Simulated assay, not measured.
Amino acid sequence: MSIDDIGPRPQAFDLETETLDNSNYRTVVWSGSHLQVTLMSIPVGGDIGLERHPDTDQFIRLDRGRGRAQMGPAKDELTFDHEVSDGWCVLVPAGSWHNVTNVGEEPMQVYTVYAPQHHKPGKVHQTQATAAADTDDEPAEWSVQPHPVADQHA
């Protein structure tokens, strides 16, 4: 990984190459005042994790692999169910329960854009388990947040 999250300063890099080269569950690569870019690698049979961001719209793009995108108004009511693959995007409205599961035969490489910022700038989680256990992964104090509302995870 050759990118450093430099905060809300101008940045340019080859997003597709970095996404494909990322081996971490999640790597935060750029944190602006109003949005954030992360790279994710989801192992075969793994998933991003069923969650809901009350005040965060999210854009997810697959650069490798096949996934099953599910969304809905409740964690037990995922009314949107669509298979996605390389080149596809998943658009998650704020307040929607959502998950993307790797249904392919290789790691699923994705990048995500959150608005507003969602993770600590520069944060790297090698696995989903380390991400879930991390108690120091809050957006930067200088980021613009609508109001303090906790995300929900299933």
Rank of each mutant, 00 (worst) to 15 (best):
M40H: 08
M40G: 02
S41Y: 05
I42P: 01
I42R: 00
V44R: 05
G45Y: 02
D47T: 07
D47G: 09
I48A: 11
I48F: 14
I48G: 14
I48V: 06
G49Y: 01
G49C: 06
G49F: 10
L50W: 08
L50H: 01
L50F: 00
E51P: 05
E51N: 14
E51S: 12
R52C: 15
R52S: 09
R52H: 14
H53A: 11
H53S: 11
H53L: 00
D55P: 00
D55F: 12
T56I: 11
T56L: 13
Q58E: 15
Q58A: 11
F59L: 15
I60S: 13
R61I: 11
R61K: 09
R61W: 10
R61S: 08
R61V: 02
L62A: 14
L62N: 03
L62T: 11
L62E: 08
L62F: 07
L62V: 13
D63A: 02
D63V: 01
D63W: 10
R64Y: 04
R64V: 03
G65I: 07
G65S: 00
G65E: 05
R66F: 12
R66L: 10
R66P: 00
R66S: 12
R66E: 13
G67C: 06
G67M: 12
G67N: 12
A69M: 08
A69S: 07
Q70R: 15
Q70D: 05
Q70N: 08
Q70H: 06
Q70I: 14
M71W: 14
M71Y: 09
A74I: 05
K75I: 03
K75E: 00
K75C: 00
D76C: 03
D76A: 02
D76F: 03
E77V: 05
L78C: 06
T79K: 02
T79V: 12
T79D: 04
T79F: 03
F80T: 12
F80Q: 07
F80A: 05
F80K: 08
D81Q: 01
D81R: 01
H82N: 13
H82Q: 15
E83K: 13
E83T: 12
V84G: 09
S85Q: 04
S85D: 10
S85I: 03
D86L: 05
G87Q: 02
G87M: 05
G87D: 09
W88N: 11
C89E: 05
C89A: 10
C89N: 04
V90L: 08
L91I: 13
L91M: 09
L91E: 14
P93L: 01
P93Q: 15
P93F: 15
P93A: 15
G95V: 14
S96H: 11
W97T: 03
W97K: 07
W97S: 02
H98C: 03
N99H: 04
N99W: 07
V100Y: 09
N102R: 07
E105H: 15
E106R: 10
E106F: 04
E106A: 08
E106Q: 10
E106S: 03
P107K: 01
P107F: 06
M108S: 09
M108P: 00
